[in-house]
Simulated assay, not measured.
Amino acid sequence: MILIAGPCVIENKDILFEVAESLSPLASHQDIEFYFKSSFDKANRTSLESYRGPGLEKGLELLAEVKKHFGYKILTDVHECYQVKPAAEIADVLQIPAFLCRQTDLIVEVAKSGVIVNIKKGQFMNPADMEYSTLKALKTKKPSLQVPVFEDSKHLGVWLTERGSSFGYGNLVVDMRSLLIMREFAPVIFDATHSVQMPGAAKGKSGGNSNFVAPLSRAAVAIGVDGFFMETHPRPSEALSDGANMITPQDLQELVETLLKVQRSLH
Protein backbone atom coordinates (compact mmCIF):
# COMPACT_ATOMS: atom_id res chain seq x y z
CA MET A 1 0.00 0.00 0.00
CA ILE A 2 1.27 3.45 -0.94
CA LEU A 3 0.83 5.90 1.93
CA ILE A 4 1.33 9.63 1.46
CA ALA A 5 1.17 11.47 4.78
CA GLY A 6 2.34 14.63 6.47
CA PRO A 7 1.11 18.11 7.41
CA CYS A 8 -0.79 20.08 4.79
CA VAL A 9 1.68 22.94 4.72
CA ILE A 10 5.12 23.48 6.22
CA GLU A 11 4.43 25.67 9.25
CA ASN A 12 7.88 25.58 10.86
CA LYS A 13 10.70 23.10 11.41
CA ASP A 14 9.53 22.01 14.86
CA ILE A 15 6.08 20.89 13.72
CA LEU A 16 7.44 19.39 10.52
CA PHE A 17 9.89 17.21 12.46
CA GLU A 18 7.29 16.40 15.14
CA VAL A 19 4.98 15.00 12.47
CA ALA A 20 7.83 13.23 10.67
CA GLU A 21 8.90 11.53 13.89
CA SER A 22 5.35 10.44 14.68
CA LEU A 23 5.04 8.77 11.27
CA SER A 24 8.13 6.61 11.72
CA PRO A 25 6.19 3.39 12.58
CA LEU A 26 4.18 3.70 9.39
CA ALA A 27 7.21 4.60 7.29
CA SER A 28 9.02 1.46 8.44
CA HIS A 29 6.01 -0.85 8.05
CA GLN A 30 6.80 -3.77 5.75
CA ASP A 31 3.45 -3.50 3.95
CA ILE A 32 3.65 0.24 3.25
CA GLU A 33 5.47 2.26 0.59
CA PHE A 34 5.73 5.55 2.45
CA TYR A 35 6.03 9.13 1.17
CA PHE A 36 6.26 12.15 3.45
CA LYS A 37 4.18 15.07 2.16
CA SER A 38 4.05 18.76 2.92
CA SER A 39 3.63 21.88 0.79
CA PHE A 40 6.13 24.73 0.59
CA ASP A 41 3.39 26.98 -0.81
CA LYS A 42 -0.40 26.77 -0.82
CA ALA A 43 -0.95 28.91 -3.90
CA ASN A 44 -4.72 28.45 -4.09
CA ARG A 45 -5.79 29.52 -0.60
CA THR A 46 -9.27 31.07 -0.52
CA SER A 47 -8.16 34.34 1.05
CA LEU A 48 -5.13 36.56 0.52
CA GLU A 49 -4.70 36.68 4.30
CA SER A 50 -4.41 32.88 4.69
CA TYR A 51 -1.03 31.35 5.50
CA ARG A 52 0.65 29.98 2.36
CA GLY A 53 3.91 28.46 3.61
CA PRO A 54 7.60 29.34 3.79
CA GLY A 55 8.07 29.51 0.01
CA LEU A 56 10.06 27.49 -2.48
CA GLU A 57 13.62 27.92 -1.25
CA LYS A 58 13.05 27.61 2.51
CA GLY A 59 10.40 24.92 2.07
CA LEU A 60 12.62 22.68 -0.05
CA GLU A 61 15.45 23.20 2.41
CA LEU A 62 13.25 21.89 5.25
CA LEU A 63 11.99 18.94 3.20
CA ALA A 64 15.61 18.07 2.35
CA GLU A 65 16.36 18.04 6.09
CA VAL A 66 13.45 15.64 6.69
CA LYS A 67 14.71 13.41 3.89
CA LYS A 68 18.25 13.37 5.25
CA HIS A 69 17.28 12.87 8.90
CA PHE A 70 14.53 10.26 8.51
CA GLY A 71 15.37 8.72 5.14
CA TYR A 72 11.83 9.32 3.87
CA LYS A 73 10.84 9.63 0.24
CA ILE A 74 9.29 13.05 -0.32
CA LEU A 75 6.17 14.27 -2.12
CA THR A 76 5.38 17.94 -2.59
CA ASP A 77 3.23 19.92 -4.98
CA VAL A 78 4.22 22.46 -7.60
CA HIS A 79 2.05 25.20 -9.09
CA GLU A 80 4.31 26.74 -11.72
CA CYS A 81 6.86 25.41 -14.18
CA TYR A 82 9.83 27.27 -12.68
CA GLN A 83 9.31 25.35 -9.41
CA VAL A 84 9.70 21.92 -11.00
CA LYS A 85 13.47 21.68 -11.44
CA PRO A 86 14.48 22.66 -7.88
CA ALA A 87 11.63 20.63 -6.37
CA ALA A 88 12.61 17.53 -8.36
CA GLU A 89 16.10 17.68 -6.85
CA ILE A 90 14.53 16.98 -3.43
CA ALA A 91 11.23 15.21 -4.07
CA ASP A 92 10.64 11.67 -5.29
CA VAL A 93 7.10 12.56 -6.36
CA LEU A 94 5.82 15.89 -7.65
CA GLN A 95 2.12 16.53 -7.38
CA ILE A 96 -0.09 18.47 -9.79
CA PRO A 97 -2.79 20.22 -7.71
CA ALA A 98 -6.42 19.45 -8.53
CA PHE A 99 -7.16 22.90 -9.94
CA LEU A 100 -4.22 22.47 -12.35
CA CYS A 101 -4.89 18.90 -13.47
CA ARG A 102 -5.37 20.01 -17.10
CA GLN A 103 -2.44 22.46 -17.15
CA THR A 104 -0.44 20.99 -20.02
CA ASP A 105 2.83 22.88 -19.58
CA LEU A 106 3.02 22.02 -15.87
CA ILE A 107 2.23 18.32 -16.41
CA VAL A 108 4.81 18.07 -19.20
CA GLU A 109 7.48 19.86 -17.16
CA VAL A 110 6.97 17.53 -14.19
CA ALA A 111 7.01 14.46 -16.46
CA LYS A 112 10.29 15.64 -18.01
CA SER A 113 11.89 15.94 -14.56
CA GLY A 114 12.08 12.16 -14.19
CA VAL A 115 10.27 11.89 -10.85
CA ILE A 116 6.91 10.21 -10.27
CA VAL A 117 3.99 12.41 -11.36
CA ASN A 118 0.91 12.46 -9.11
CA ILE A 119 -2.01 14.24 -10.78
CA LYS A 120 -4.93 15.08 -8.52
CA LYS A 121 -8.30 14.84 -10.24
CA GLY A 122 -9.98 18.22 -10.35
CA GLN A 123 -13.17 18.58 -8.34
CA PHE A 124 -14.80 19.56 -11.64
CA MET A 125 -13.50 16.64 -13.73
CA ASN A 126 -15.20 13.60 -15.19
CA PRO A 127 -12.93 10.77 -13.95
CA ALA A 128 -12.83 9.23 -17.43
CA ASP A 129 -11.37 12.46 -18.82
CA MET A 130 -8.35 12.10 -16.53
CA GLU A 131 -7.15 9.68 -19.19
CA TYR A 132 -6.01 12.69 -21.21
CA SER A 133 -4.09 14.30 -18.36
CA THR A 134 -2.44 10.92 -17.76
CA LEU A 135 -1.53 10.66 -21.42
CA LYS A 136 0.11 14.09 -21.37
CA ALA A 137 2.56 12.81 -18.77
CA LEU A 138 3.01 9.37 -20.34
CA LYS A 139 3.67 10.67 -23.85
CA THR A 140 6.24 13.07 -22.44
CA LYS A 141 8.02 10.12 -20.84
CA LYS A 142 7.42 7.74 -23.79
CA PRO A 143 6.26 9.50 -27.00
CA SER A 144 5.18 6.28 -28.73
CA LEU A 145 2.32 5.67 -26.28
CA GLN A 146 -1.14 6.34 -27.67
CA VAL A 147 -3.51 5.00 -25.03
CA PRO A 148 -2.75 4.94 -21.31
CA VAL A 149 -3.06 1.60 -19.53
CA PHE A 150 -2.45 0.77 -15.89
CA GLU A 151 0.83 -1.09 -16.39
CA ASP A 152 2.38 1.69 -18.49
CA SER A 153 1.42 4.30 -15.90
CA LYS A 154 2.76 2.19 -13.06
CA HIS A 155 6.01 1.45 -14.86
CA LEU A 156 6.60 5.04 -16.03
CA GLY A 157 5.55 6.61 -12.74
CA VAL A 158 2.24 8.42 -13.30
CA TRP A 159 -0.39 8.28 -10.54
CA LEU A 160 -3.87 9.76 -10.21
CA THR A 161 -5.44 10.94 -6.97
CA GLU A 162 -9.16 11.16 -6.21
CA ARG A 163 -10.10 14.01 -3.87
CA GLY A 164 -13.86 14.29 -4.30
CA SER A 165 -16.13 16.15 -6.71
CA SER A 166 -17.96 19.45 -6.29
CA PHE A 167 -21.54 18.96 -5.17
CA GLY A 168 -23.37 22.25 -5.28
CA TYR A 169 -21.62 25.03 -3.38
CA GLY A 170 -19.28 24.36 -0.46
CA ASN A 171 -19.45 20.57 -0.50
CA LEU A 172 -17.65 17.59 -1.99
CA VAL A 173 -18.80 14.03 -2.54
CA VAL A 174 -16.81 10.94 -3.48
CA ASP A 175 -18.19 8.89 -6.34
CA MET A 176 -16.53 5.56 -5.62
CA ARG A 177 -17.00 4.57 -9.26
CA SER A 178 -14.26 7.06 -10.15
CA LEU A 179 -11.68 4.90 -8.38
CA LEU A 180 -12.44 2.00 -10.71
CA ILE A 181 -12.73 4.19 -13.81
CA MET A 182 -9.34 5.85 -13.33
CA ARG A 183 -7.66 2.63 -12.24
CA GLU A 184 -8.15 1.33 -15.78
CA PHE A 185 -5.33 3.61 -16.90
CA ALA A 186 -3.25 4.53 -13.82
CA PRO A 187 -2.54 3.61 -10.20
CA VAL A 188 -5.07 5.45 -8.04
CA ILE A 189 -4.51 7.13 -4.69
CA PHE A 190 -7.49 8.03 -2.51
CA ASP A 191 -7.09 11.41 -0.83
CA ALA A 192 -9.12 10.73 2.28
CA THR A 193 -8.61 14.06 4.02
CA HIS A 194 -9.25 16.47 1.14
CA SER A 195 -12.33 14.46 0.19
CA VAL A 196 -14.02 15.58 3.41
CA GLN A 197 -13.19 19.23 2.80
CA MET A 198 -15.96 21.83 2.56
CA PRO A 199 -14.60 24.56 0.27
CA GLY A 200 -15.15 28.09 1.51
CA ALA A 201 -17.19 26.93 4.49
CA ALA A 202 -15.13 28.70 7.15
CA LYS A 203 -15.44 32.36 6.09
CA GLY A 204 -12.49 32.85 3.77
CA LYS A 205 -11.01 29.38 4.16
CA SER A 206 -12.07 25.79 3.67
CA GLY A 207 -13.85 23.84 6.36
CA GLY A 208 -14.34 20.11 6.58
CA ASN A 209 -15.41 17.16 8.70
CA SER A 210 -12.66 14.69 9.57
CA ASN A 211 -15.22 12.26 11.04
CA PHE A 212 -15.78 10.97 7.51
CA VAL A 213 -12.10 10.20 6.78
CA ALA A 214 -12.20 6.67 8.22
CA PRO A 215 -15.47 5.42 6.66
CA LEU A 216 -14.59 6.78 3.21
CA SER A 217 -11.15 5.19 3.46
CA ARG A 218 -12.64 1.82 4.37
CA ALA A 219 -14.96 2.06 1.37
CA ALA A 220 -12.05 2.95 -0.93
CA VAL A 221 -9.84 0.07 0.21
CA ALA A 222 -12.74 -2.35 -0.25
CA ILE A 223 -13.31 -1.13 -3.81
CA GLY A 224 -9.60 -1.32 -4.59
CA VAL A 225 -7.01 1.46 -4.70
CA ASP A 226 -3.23 1.53 -4.80
CA GLY A 227 -2.73 3.87 -1.90
CA PHE A 228 -3.91 6.65 0.38
CA PHE A 229 -3.16 10.32 0.84
CA MET A 230 -3.85 11.53 4.38
CA GLU A 231 -2.70 14.80 5.82
CA THR A 232 -1.97 14.74 9.52
CA HIS A 233 -1.20 17.20 12.30
CA PRO A 234 -0.61 16.63 16.02
CA ARG A 235 -3.11 19.39 16.85
CA PRO A 236 -5.47 19.80 13.88
CA SER A 237 -7.43 22.65 15.49
CA GLU A 238 -4.20 24.70 15.57
CA ALA A 239 -3.10 23.90 12.01
CA LEU A 240 -2.52 26.83 9.68
CA SER A 241 -4.14 25.06 6.72
CA ASP A 242 -6.85 22.40 6.37
CA GLY A 243 -7.09 21.68 10.09
CA ALA A 244 -10.78 20.78 9.86
CA ASN A 245 -10.14 17.77 7.65
CA MET A 246 -6.77 16.54 8.99
CA ILE A 247 -6.45 13.73 11.54
CA THR A 248 -3.89 13.15 14.29
CA PRO A 249 -0.92 10.83 13.72
CA GLN A 250 -2.33 8.40 16.30
CA ASP A 251 -5.69 8.23 14.51
CA LEU A 252 -3.85 7.86 11.21
CA GLN A 253 -1.86 4.90 12.48
CA GLU A 254 -4.96 3.14 13.81
CA LEU A 255 -6.83 3.77 10.54
CA VAL A 256 -3.98 2.49 8.37
CA GLU A 257 -3.80 -0.74 10.38
CA THR A 258 -7.53 -1.22 9.77
CA LEU A 259 -7.11 -0.55 6.05
CA LEU A 260 -4.29 -3.07 5.81
CA LYS A 261 -6.47 -5.71 7.49
CA VAL A 262 -9.26 -5.06 4.99
CA GLN A 263 -6.81 -5.14 2.11
CA ARG A 264 -5.37 -8.48 3.26
CA SER A 265 -8.85 -9.97 3.65
CA LEU A 266 -9.63 -9.18 0.02
CA HIS A 267 -6.56 -11.00 -1.28
Rank of each mutant, 00 (worst) to 15 (best):
L172H: 01
T258R: 14
I119V: 13
V117H: 02
N44A: 03
K13R: 14
R163E: 02
V158A: 11
K142H: 14
I32N: 04
Q250F: 14
A5R: 03
L160S: 06
L160T: 05
F99V: 12
T76F: 07
E231H: 09
I74E: 02
K37Y: 04
G170K: 06
K85I: 11
F150A: 05
S39V: 04
F34P: 00
S178E: 00
S165D: 01
E254W: 13
V147Q: 14
N126Y: 13
P187F: 06
Q30S: 15
G59D: 01
Y132I: 14
V225H: 02
K154S: 15
S206F: 01
A186H: 05
A239V: 12
K112M: 08
A201Q: 07
I4D: 00
L180T: 14
R264N: 07
M130A: 10
T134L: 09
H79K: 12
I181Q: 05
A111H: 03
G157F: 11
I189L: 13
R264Q: 10
R163H: 06
V115S: 09
S133P: 06
K203N: 15
G207P: 01
L63P: 00
V117N: 00
H233V: 12
N126D: 14
R102H: 11
K67C: 01
V108F: 08
T104L: 09
V84Y: 03
S133G: 08
A91D: 02
G59E: 05
R218A: 04
A201T: 00
L23Q: 09
V149H: 12
D31M: 12
R45K: 02
A214E: 11
K58S: 13
K141S: 08
I96W: 06
V93Y: 01
E109F: 08
K121E: 03
E162K: 04
E18A: 13
V9S: 06
W159C: 05
S39D: 07
P127W: 07
V66H: 03
T134P: 08
H69K: 15
T193N: 05
R264T: 01
S47N: 05
